[in-house]
């Protein structure tokens, strides 16, 4: 498997404050869906910014698909990574949905004639083609984030990072965004590496792998099942388990190992018989 992102001995601190990342290591395989979780202020957003070269590490190495991140390669690397931010309002550049999707294409200097089809395709994937001429502020939060996702998809990135993209949304908006992500994963499969930063552990269970960080330290790393079997450690780090995990812990007798929601329901209905 190729490595989409490889972080080696990363060190970083914001100006005068204490060190945030101290010899931090993380490798993300190409095609994985990784959920990055950690309490408020644990450094998740900082990590994403470091990978994108929006801020520069004090020491250490970040490579993206084998290319080390440097001043020379930063634009090439950004061309492979798309990012959706938490606040849907602060990431719109265009005055209409179509203009916004076009923004990245314009930067890539795509010929004007090729743009409409690329824009339509991207909007189609997230199910927003009907809103092409709408102004961003007339959209609901969930719709805005789907447009933000389309703007990123139009650039055909190999990696997409979502930094708490659902945090400001109501349950409906959250559902549509998560469904869109699952559809993306189904459509692009191994060609797309997905990193979702979230506080919602039920969202994190959708990923192939969960990475828990705290104050710039890697606390846990593994499949959702492996990570969520560490209930105490999760609680100690200000986090919780997905609902099914918290429930299983209250069962008497409790299941021997971690079960996700579907497995827990199966397990319970078998017990009953």
């Amino acid at each position: 498997m190729t490595q989409a992102i490889k972080i080696n001995n990363l060190n970083y601190q914001y100006d005068d404050t204490q060190t945030l990342f101290d010899d931090f290591n993380l490798t993300i395989e190409s095609g994985q869906w990784v959920a990055l979780v950690g309490h408020n202020g644990s450094g998740k957003s900082t990590l994403a910014k470091l990978v994108l070269g929006l801020i520069a590490a004090n020491a250490g190495e970040i490579t993206v698909f084998g290319v080390p991140l440097t001043v020379e390669t930063v634009h090439e690397i950004r061309g492979q990574i798309g990012m959706v931010f938490q606040n849907p309002d602060n990431q719109f550049v265009g005055a209409t949905v179509a203009d916004d999707v076009a923004f990245g294409l314009e930067n890539q200097q795509l010929p004007s004639n090729d743009m409409p089809s690329r824009i339509d395709e991207a909007l189609n994937i997230v199910g927003m083609q009907a809103f092409k001429d709408r102004e961003p502020h007339t959209l609901s939060g969930g719709q805005k984030q789907r447009v933000a996702l389309a703007s990123v998809l139009a650039l055909a990135p190999k990696i997409i990072i979502l930094d708490e993209a659902t945090a400001m949304l109501d349950p409906d908006g959250r559902d549509t965004v998560m469904q869109t992500l699952q559809a993306l994963k189904a459509r692009f499969g191994k060609a797309l590496t997905l990193i979702t930063i979230t506080h919602d552990m039920d969202e994190a269970t959708l990923a192939d792998r969960v990475v828990v960080i705290n104050d710039g330290q890697l606390i846990l790393d593994g499949t959702p099942a492996a990570v969520f079997s560490q209930r105490d450690l999760m609680h100690d780090n200000g986090l919780a388990l997905p609902f099914a995990g918290e429930l299983a812990a209250q069962m008497q007798p409790a299941p021997a190992n971690y079960l996700d929601e579907r497995e827990l329901i199966q397990w319970l209905s078998r017990l009953k018989k």
Partner: peptide, 30 residues
């Protein structure tokens, strides 16, 4: 969760609202 349990063939006497209620109901049921 209780609705999903019902669909899987395990019906609880009443709809639980909290994790504790759900856990208690399941534990007695089982």
């Amino acid at each position: 969760f209780a609705e999903k349990l019902t669909a899987a063939g395990m019906k609880l006497p009443e709809r639980p609202l909290t994790l504790t209620q759900l856990a208690t109901a399941i534990n007695t049921e089982v």
